[in-house]
Design a protein around this nucleic acid. Structure first.
Lengths: 150, 150
DNA sequence: AAATTACATTTGTACCTACAATTGTTGTTG
DNA sequence: CAACAACAATTGTAGGTACAAATGTAATTT
């Protein structure tokens, strides 16, 4: 009974490393879909949420675009345009930096903080539900193995 | 020493389930980047390779678009346009189905089979290298935990 | 047989990703 | 100080994803 085979609609017997790579990809797809759907109900993408979290972590200190880019989970997305969307939604404000006019200063608005406060407990719940099928030991094992992999 | 924190450039202590979700996402990013780069060296995307594999599995029997869609790893991509790209590259041929003209018949070309034969051993090698940091026991444990999760 | 419904694929649109080129600003150097 | 390099962000472009609407064909209903 190999669940992967039913996902792939195939009876092929796969070598262990290939099977594991596919398993990682499929699990991540599943996780991403759940998260994406969740964020969509707030009219946000996962990456937009990620940026809001980073800005909140600044505790009032404005962040430059390059700082945000460094801290994002997906380093390669187009942070300029991603932030445009957040500004359109009034979750973030942008100002030119006085000391160095090449830089911009980004700051989360009250509206941005408010939506984070609404999202966070629900997201915690979603994550808890997602891992409910595993024991604490198994989750810790998974963590250790994943960290070893990188 | 939490590798995640260095990726996220943050010292926050995360609850286990949040940490694990991020770990899965980051591991998958890493894996996907490696694969993407690899496929790019053949001027393909991972999804295009996935379709070529499905078509080869047909062993000469033409496949409909809907069949391919069902079997793909990422079910939501736009299979019509994905296959357009493969046709442009002469890896696939498309014909209207005689019995039911709503359907199309897709078949992999000799050029398509040839590139798969070039890719496959190198991909095996890449996968083996990726999991070299883990023991066979650990890989099997990872597999079991991932299957439990879905 | 005409109208309706279901099926299979394509097309359209908005947004995202990846990456290169451009713009505007600051720092450095001959 | 003019020229050039480095930096920070934006803009451009090609392709990918997600999803809705449209097209063309076949099956079903009345």
């Amino acid at each position: 009974m190999n669940k992967l085979n039913s996902i792939l609609k195939s009876d092929a017997v796969l070598p262990l490393h290939k099977k594991t790579a596919l398993n990682l990809i499929c699990t991540n797809n599943y996780l991403s879909e759940q998260f994406q759907e969740f964020f969509k109900s707030f009219n946000l993408t996962g990456q937009q949420y990620n940026v809001l979290r980073i800005l909140r972590g600044q505790k009032g200190i404005p962040a430059n675009l390059s700082t945000i880019q460094e801290r994002m989970i997906h380093k390669n997305s187009n942070t300029s345009r991603l932030i445009d969307k957040l500004i359109q939604k009034r979750f973030v404000e942008r100002n030119q930096c006085e000391e160095n006019r090449r830089k911009i200063e980004l700051i989360i608005t009250k509206k941005g903080l408010a939506i984070l406060n609404k999202i966070d407990p629900e997201l915690d719940e979603l994550e808890t539900i997602f891992f409910k099928k595993l024991s604490v030991d198994e989750i810790e094992t998974l963590n250790n193995i994943l960290e070893k992999l990188r």
